[in-house]
């Protein structure tokens, strides 16, 4: 098992001086993910918080080879890099023993929504790439618009709560399940508060031959509206309420990686977050019930799949 002391001794691939918010979850995710391989790494980053906050010219926070081309195409961009690597190896212009890992990265906007097609295509074609989505449940880079990863009832600027609306009316899209349906070798959900689990999953993903996908919950104090010192606690609550189950699907086989001793009510996840504040109005009580029902259904289904 990896020790934090040893990880801390490794070279930072994402360095200080970036512009991400106080208490942001993104750097915590990539502190772990980028240490999960010691091979040279090339990253293609979708437009979003991570991209914008790390590369304001002439400064860059990347101490690793990195490219950004657009919002919706991190997967196809990294697929292109990987294809050239394959081509040049075939043609003998890259030594046979030179190993490089290829990583696509995007937020939920660039992954669940606008980048879904490119991601699906790259996964289906079987490129030897890893894709990591940091899911902060909104278009946080541009001020918190809804995404298909925004949970039911959350107020976002394009699904605002109001006298006639309880916030987002739709259920969160289950992207991980969509990726499982691609029958790729490795798909997993993770969270930065369970760093060993995240580290192991990232290692597996990098070691996988062919495409691998990690969906990582990413707390966002700016858009979720909670005390920014509480991110890790909140992530733990997401696991304990089963709002964000940790699991992996390796060659089609499901495994749940965290089972709460006592499954907590979804209310505990909702309460600390300002984006859900309006749900405590009388007329929105049904949303709380519905949210709980959906989480229960998903958890039950996941347990069934894990027992198969």
């Amino acid at each position: 098992m990896a020790k934090l002391k040893d990880l801390a001794a490794m070279e930072d691939r994402l360095v200080a001086g970036h512009g991400m918010c106080l208490g942001c979850g993104i750097p915590l995710i990539f502190r772990i993910v980028l240490r999960a391989t010691e091979d040279p790494l090339i990253i293609a980053n979708a437009t979003g918080c991570l991209e914008v906050c790390t590369t304001i010219f002439p400064r860059t926070s990347w101490n690793v080879t990195w490219i950004h081309s657009a919002f919706e195409n991190a997967a196809s961009t990294i697929a292109g890099v990987e294809s050239m690597y394959k081509a040049l190896k075939n043609k003998g212009r890259i030594p046979e023993d030179k190993k490089i890992k290829f990583l696509g990265v995007g937020g939920d906007g660039g992954t669940y929504d606008i980048g879904l097609q490119a991601l699906s295509g790259a996964m289906e074609r079987g490129h030897d790439i890893v894709y990591v989505c940091y899911d902060n449940n909104a278009y946080a880079n541009t001020g918190g618009q809804r995404s298909s990863a925004t949970p039911l009832g959350a107020s976002a600027t394009t699904s605002p709560e109001g006298t006639q609306s309880p916030g987002k009316l739709q259920r969160k899209k289950d992207l991980t399940k969509i990726l499982v349906a691609h029958n790729i070798p490795y798909v997993a959900q993770a969270s930065p508060n369970r760093w060993q689990d995240l580290y192991k999953k990232a290692q597996k993903a990098f070691e996988t031959e062919g495409p691998a996908f990690l969906n990582v919950l990413c707390f966002c104090p700016t858009e979720w509206k909670y005390d920014e010192s509480q991110g890790i606690r909140l992530a733990q609550t997401a696991l304990d309420t089963c709002v964000w189950p940790l699991y992996e699907v390796e060659n089609g086989k499901y495994k749940i990686n965290y089972i709460p001793k006592e499954k907590k009510p979804v209310l505990e996840w909702i309460k600390p977050q300002g984006r859900f504040r309006h749900l405590f109005k009388e007329e929105n009580a049904w949303v709380l019930e519905e949210y709980q029902k959906q989480v229960d259904e998903d958890w039950e289904e996941l347990n069934k799949l894990a027992k198969l």
């Binding site: 075939n90 490119a118 074609r125």
Partner: peptide, 22 residues
């Protein structure tokens, strides 16, 4: 060379961009 048949022209050009940058 590698022939890649992506799921759209948008991705075809994105693959080209990734490959050319590589």
């Amino acid at each position: 060379g590698e022939f890649v048949c992506p799921e759209s022209e948008h991705s075809a050009m994105s693959v080209c961009i990734g490959a050319s940058s590589a």
